[in-house]
Structure formats: structure tokens, C-alpha cells
Amino acid sequence: MRAITFVPGKQGTLGITDVPEPEPGAGDLLVQGLALGICGTDRELISGEYGWPREDPMILGHESLGRVLQVPEGSAYSPGDLVVGVVRRPDPEPCGACARGEFDMCRNGEYTERGIKERDGYGSERWTVEAAYAVKLDPGLGTLGVLVEPASVVAKAWEHIERIGSRAWFEPRTVLVTGAGPIGLLAALLAHQRGLEVHVLDRAADGLKPALVADLGATYHAASDLKAVGFKPDIILECTGAGPLVFDAMLNTAAAGIVCLAGVSSGGRLLSADAGQINRDIVLENDVVFGTVNANLRHYRAAADALSQADAAWLERLITRRLPLDRAPEAFDRGQDVKVVIELGE
């Protein structure tokens, strides 16, 4: 069968290769791959900028969607079910968090990840997944199920925002999302579903991004800093990883505000910041700044529920390019896309 492979740590090794058919172990589902979402992490992996080097090729892909072909005896799944596979697995000798199913909060870094760290991903015509790490989807979600993994990241972000908010009286009214990429737009969707007044800031002055935000019933700000917003929101989800916006967010929430950092910054850029003012603002206003990445099983399920409740036509517009498997390398070309998806099968 065909798969999208690369050699971790080696640039220029991306390709479509023939690999052995997967052999399901006890408790595994055999799955027909349907679609694979591509994100910035995948681009960093194939460029050699990120990852855990090894000599042999690895199958790429962590934003999965597939249809079950074969199930183990006594399984809660059935052939034909739509599923996504969870990305992370707990460490072999689990830390306290991993041992309690909170493997997204692993303390010792010995976790593994499908398509990212030490485990083959979901970028193949067929793949296997442990039934315990598969999430069944509403059949009505169809091919939009490929958005579950990125949505799980923001489902976790919102769960933690609400947990932090519950430290005291918490009735937020306004939320600002910085960045209108897939994570930012999905974060805005989940904010909208919570009945909040949603604002989104992005540099794009026109085109699809402003239209998607407007059709969500939110307010779009075409700018590169928070001065354009004109008020201090209760919650900021920073989804760009841009250093100036990160510092800007810390100084521009309402009192007892919450800043969730969901964008990953690249290193090597030095910025000047008034650390004293940032500290003073956070302390005197009881603000919270926290980071979040990855997701565990309940976040995947929450994401699947959120997508099932969303307008399917709006979600479909997030996917700006679909490519067949034999054109997979084109998915990594940088352009004006929101989300690129590789179709692995029918």
C-alpha cells in the first residue's frame, strides 16, 4: 500500500512510498484511511526543523480520518464506523498524569506520538489504531471529521480556560482570538458556541478569513497588533505564536483576564519587552497566562461534539484545498490556504 513517508531529521526525504500492509494486533482496529490534514508541525518535520531523528522512514500524519474495516472480537466498534486516531500515547512507565489518562500533560516527556514522535502516523491508505485510542464520529460529520484533531486542541484550551475561571466569579463576555488559521478559527467557533462576543484579529485585510469570521457572527480586525481592537477582552486565545502579539496579549486583558497561548513560536528572534510592566499588570489584576498543546481522549470527544453541532457549510470552507494521495507533496507548499487535506481513499 502507499504511504506518505519521510526520514525524521533529514530534509528532502518526503515521498510517497510502498509500505507493508498494517497487521492489527489484539485490540486494534484496521482502518481505511480517508483523509489527512496538514499543519505547521508536519512542515517542520519534513524540513528537519523539528522531530526525533532516526535512520529509517516514518509515516507522516497526525490529523486523521478513517473508516473501520475490521474490529477485534467484542469491540464497541463496527465495520463502517468513521473514526479518528488519537495522536499521543503515554510513556511506557507512566508519570502520574499519564497513568491517569492525562497523557497530554505528560511530566517526563517520554510520551510518543503518531506521525510526530517515534510512531508511524496516519498518512497511509490503511492503518491500525488501538480501539482505546480511537474516537467514533457522528456519521453525519463525514469528511469534516478530519478537523477533529485540531479542534481537540482548542477543546482542551477552552476546558482549561473554564477551569481557571472557576477560581472565582467568572462570567466572561468578550473573547479575542489572535490569528485566523485553522486553530484560531476553530477557537472562535467554540467561543461562539459558548455564547460569547467573539473578536478575531489577523493580518489578512480581505478574502476568506474575514468572511468566515463574519459568517460566524464575530467581529474581524485586520491588524498586526491589539491597538486595533479598542478594548480589553476577558479572554484572549493567542494562536499565532508571534512574539510581539504574545507580549501584547499579556498586557491587554480585562482585570482577572485569562490568556491562553496556543500558538508555537519559533526560536531565534530577540524582542524587547518591559518585563516589569508585564509582571505588574499580571499580578495587580490577578491575570493568568498559560500554554496548552495536544489533547487527550475527552478533548477529542468534545471536539467531535462541537463539530457535529456546527454549520457544516462553514466548516467545509475551512478546507481550502483537497489533494489526492499521489499529489501529497503539493500539500506542503505554503500559500494562502486555511487548511489543506490529502485524500487517502474514497
Rank of each mutant, 00 (worst) to 15 (best):
R2H: 11
A3E: 01
A3G: 13
I4V: 13
Q11K: 07
Q11P: 08
L14V: 02
I16N: 04
D18E: 15
V19D: 04
E21I: 10
E21L: 15
E21S: 14
P22S: 11
A26S: 14
V31F: 01
Q32G: 09
G33N: 10
L34F: 08
A35Q: 01
I38S: 00
G40W: 00
D42E: 10
L45S: 01
S47L: 06
G48P: 00
E49H: 12
Y50Q: 03
W52I: 13
P53G: 09
M58T: 11
E63Y: 01
S64H: 03
V68G: 09
L69K: 01
Q70I: 07
V71Y: 01
P72F: 05
L82C: 12
L82M: 07
V84T: 02
G85W: 08
D91T: 06
D91Y: 02
D91E: 12
P92G: 04
G96C: 09
R100A: 11
R100S: 14
G101P: 08
E102Y: 06
R107A: 06
G109A: 05
E110N: 09
Y111W: 10
T112V: 15
K117D: 11
E118F: 08
V129A: 05
A131N: 04
A131S: 14
V135L: 09
K136Q: 12
D138M: 07
L141F: 15
L141C: 12
V148R: 01
V148H: 06
P150G: 12
A155H: 01
A155G: 09
A157G: 07
H160M: 10
S166M: 07
A168P: 03
A168Y: 12
W169H: 13
W169L: 15
T174K: 08
V175D: 07
G179K: 01
P182L: 15
G184Q: 10
G184N: 07
L186G: 06
A187F: 08
L196T: 13
E197G: 06
E197K: 14
H199W: 04
A204T: 10
D206R: 01
L208V: 08
L208I: 11
P210A: 10
A211I: 06
V213I: 15
T219S: 15
Y220M: 04
S224N: 12
D225P: 08
G230H: 09
P233L: 01
I235L: 14
I236K: 05
I236A: 09
L237T: 10
L237K: 03
C239F: 01
A242M: 00
A249L: 14
L251T: 11
T253F: 00
A254Q: 13
A256N: 12
I258N: 05
V259N: 04
V259P: 02
L261I: 13
S266C: 10
G267P: 13
L270R: 11
A273E: 02
A273V: 15
A275M: 14
I278E: 00
R280C: 13
D281C: 05
D281Y: 09
T292G: 07
H299S: 08
H299T: 14
H299N: 11
Y300H: 00
R301F: 11
A306Y: 03
L307Q: 09
S308G: 06
Q309M: 15
A310S: 11
A310H: 03
L315W: 02
R317Q: 06
R317Y: 12
P324Q: 14
P324G: 10
L325K: 04
D326M: 13
A328S: 03
P329M: 02
F332C: 03
G335V: 13
D337N: 06
V338K: 00
V338L: 08
V341T: 01
G345N: 04
